[in-house]
Design a protein around this nucleic acid. Structure first.
Lengths: 221, 221
DNA sequence: AGAAAATTAGACAGTCTTGTCTAAATTGTC
DNA sequence: GACAATTTAGACAAGACTGTCTAATTTTCT
């Protein structure tokens, strides 16, 4: 029984090993450029085993995208849960949050993979990435917007449209890493820190409360 | 004499036709996915002619990237030349500028092509895209930063680091188009306009002069 | 019109890749 | 240790693609 997901323990190891290798190869080579032998070799498995587990190449690709999408979304929401709802030092707390966002969601392997794959194969498999689109960025933006709206309601921020603010926050956080993210290289800790600092400073200049224009002291909640 | 660039007039038509078709196909299919027959057919030319003009596939790819890079950079600098150095209405003028930037540089065919190709093949041909990197974004950022610095010096803006501000301006301008740009779809005029408006409003909240915090009247130059 | 250059269609060998199949070896379970 | 499931190496056919070659045709220039 080949496709039974409750297979023996050893199988599961091979299964994840294959998905892992396939993710790497698809990401490096794109769908057409990837070949099954490469994936099998990188997974330390025979080619036939790959076919046993996932059928054909397109099937394997879909499985990989689903897997990574799920993992990436989980990571995003875990990071979102660390949003500073009751900030002691708003600027410092947001900087820390921005750094976590970059490290755990944008710059890791899953983030790089999804970015690349969506751009290369997004037009070829629209239904596949529709799931990513609605579950990933869609929910992320909404959730982040809700957090900002709460901060604004508590008097920490001033904004008209929390949805726009959320998108802009994410855009600012990536502004300085744009080049690294494009080329797929992993930015250093210094780059991530500096990107987060610049982003939050500007974000608070735009959305911080007017009285504390320089954004130093925290207001009463 | 096949490779003579000063060939007859009719050749030039075929040459650009091939480059054009190749750009489309490489962009759609990626390097491995593209095949020469497809390119020849789309160019309305026989396969042999493609080989006559550009040698092999890798060579053709390089020629295409160089061509598009050059054209895209020209477009960027043409748009940059329309920067509002002496704004009558700073907000409105910057919105118009942002819209031009998006339409002429980010959302057109060349912008889409480069974004996609750099992300897919950037690691495979680092030397090729190094030229894009230093001539394109590198100079764009610097030039835009210089414009902002001049506006700040003239009293229209307040900023510490014009380089950061320039990067953030571009990031904000793309914030709302992120999804379209990822998937390669062309945003509507309304989307472009709204993206530019949101971006400039926030940019001016952060970098506009404090007295005119709502950014309505223009200060004396 | 006539010569030179370029283009075309088609065939072609060589290579690579996919997906299947088989028989042998390995693994895990009872 | 025996049995069942899984994995493995390798062969294999079918198809696709690259890059070359040739002979015929078209275009371009004089």
């Amino acid at each position: 029984m080949v496709f039974d997901p409750t297979a023996q323990r050893g199988h599961l190891a091979k299964r994840v090993s294959i998905l892992d290798a396939a993710a790497n190869v698809f990401c490096r080579e794109g769908f057409s450029g990837a070949n099954i032998d490469m994936i099998a070799a990188e997974a330390g498995v025979s080619r036939q085993t790959v076919y046993n587990h996932h059928g054909d190449k397109a099937n394997l690709f879909v499985a990989v995208v689903r897997e990574i999408t799920e993992r990436a979304n989980a990571g995003v929401f875990a990071t979102l849960a660390t949003f500073p709802d009751q900030p002691r030092d708003l600027e410092a707390d947001l900087v820390q949050f921005a750094m976590r966002l970059n490290r755990n969601c944008m710059c890791n392997r899953d983030g790089k993979f999804l970015r690349k794959l969506i751009q290369t194969e997004g037009e070829r498999y629209p239904e596949l990435f529709e799931a990513w689109r609605s579950d990933g960025p869609g929910k992320t933006w909404a959730a982040l917007a809700a957090r900002f709206a709460r901060l604004a309601h508590a008097g920490y921020l001033e904004m008209d449209d929390p949805d726009v603010a959320a998108r802009q926050f994410l855009a600012l956080v990536n502004a300085d890493l744009h080049m690294s993210l494009m080329l797929g290289t992993t930015p250093t800790d210094e780059e991530v820190a500096s990107a987060a600092t610049n982003a939050v400073r500007t974000f608070l200049r735009a959305y911080g409360r007017r009285p504390q224009a320089t954004a130093a002291s925290s207001p009463a909640p």
